[in-house]
């Protein structure tokens, strides 16, 4: 209340605001604007083309592949990394065991680059430990990063491996926040295990599930480092490139210097992420 008398302006905050505008607002707005231009990074000519870049993108085979791959990776990591994980953790009702948390969190804190280096070795067709293990078990060795479909699955496995610990800890935090009395009350009322899960655990865990699903979706739509490090010819992979949206965008922007075209792709990525986030929020709010 005392504050309403004085009117401290936002002026004190101005340097921070300017920095924020320069580092976030300006590039975001420029991206949206640039997507409407034919703009080459090397020659300073900009030609307004309206929706031209978008129309070209829809027909671009690389973009289509990238969109499909990214969607599969995102859907796969959300399903494997949250839905299945949730089914296991919730029924397990694990408490404590901090050593497990520590181990599961190791991949989360290890940066992507060394992670991809070692996984590329694991997947190596000729010498890699994975194929050695397959042979020892009497299974046929696979060309993990070379075969079209297998390469996508291989990347998905690494993504799930890296993020599982994060999701697990978030779910454990969510579960431990549910008051024990709720369970006791449900048991007193004669509810069985599956009903307790449906009517107590799931509704109370919903905010956390939403959070984890949104984060997984955003992060997997931005996937770049694993596909770049493990499947790109630039990094010397003899492998099949798993093209994702950010990879395709990076290639258009920084290999072919097509600022406008890459920006249109960026705008689509941005729109997709925002729409998916809002969709998740709606889905989880209405489903009670």
């Amino acid at each position: 209340m005392a504050l309403s008398g004085r009117q401290p302006s936002a002026a004190r905050d101005l340097p921070v605001l300017l920095l924020f505008a320069y580092l976030r607002i300006v590039p975001i707005v420029t991206t949206l604007a640039a997507s409407l231009y034919n703009w080459d990074m090397i020659r300073p000519i900009r030609v307004f083309v309206g929706w031209g870049n978008y129309l070209e993108l829809i027909q671009d085979a690389n973009f289509q592949t990238a969109l499909v791959n990214t969607s599969i990776l995102a859907a796969g990591s959300v399903i494997l990394g949250t839905v299945l994980l949730l089914a296991v953790t919730v029924n397990a009702r694990v408490r404590g065991a901090p050593i497990y948390q520590l181990v599961y969190f190791l991949p989360v804190v290890t940066p992507w680059v060394p992670v991809t280096v070692v996984w590329k070795w694991i997947y190596d067709t000729r010498y890699g430990p994975l194929n050695q293990a397959m042979v020892a078990l009497g299974l046929a060795p696979q060309s993990w990063l070379v075969d079209d479909r297998l390469a996508l699955i291989s990347i998905l496995i690494v993504m799930v491996w890296k993020t599982l610990g994060y999701n697990l800890i978030m779910f454990l935090v969510g579960l431990s926040n549910i008051p024990q009395e709720y369970y006791e009350a449900a048991v007193v009322d004669g509810a069985s295990g599956s009903r307790i899960f449906r009517h107590v655990t799931l509704p109370l865990l919903r905010p956390m599930i939403l959070f984890v699903v949104v984060i997984s979706t955003i992060n997997s739509f931005n996937v770049f480092t694993p596909v770049f490090m493990m499947t790109s010819d630039i990094q010397g992979a003899a492998a099949k490139l798993v093209r994702t949206l950010v990879y395709d965008m990076w290639e258009n922007g920084f290999r072919y210097f097509r600022v406008g075209y890459a920006s249109a792709e960026a705008a689509i990525l941005l729109g997709l992420v925002l729409v998916l986030t809002l969709m998740h929020m709606r889905l989880f709010r209405e489903d009670r």
Partner: peptide, 17 residues
């Protein structure tokens, strides 16, 4: 809103800045 927008989606103009 900007917290939800990935850096990758505006990095080309950011590079030019």
């Amino acid at each position: 809103v900007t917290a939800m927008i990935p850096f990758e989606s505006y990095m080309v103009p950011f590079y030019l800045q």
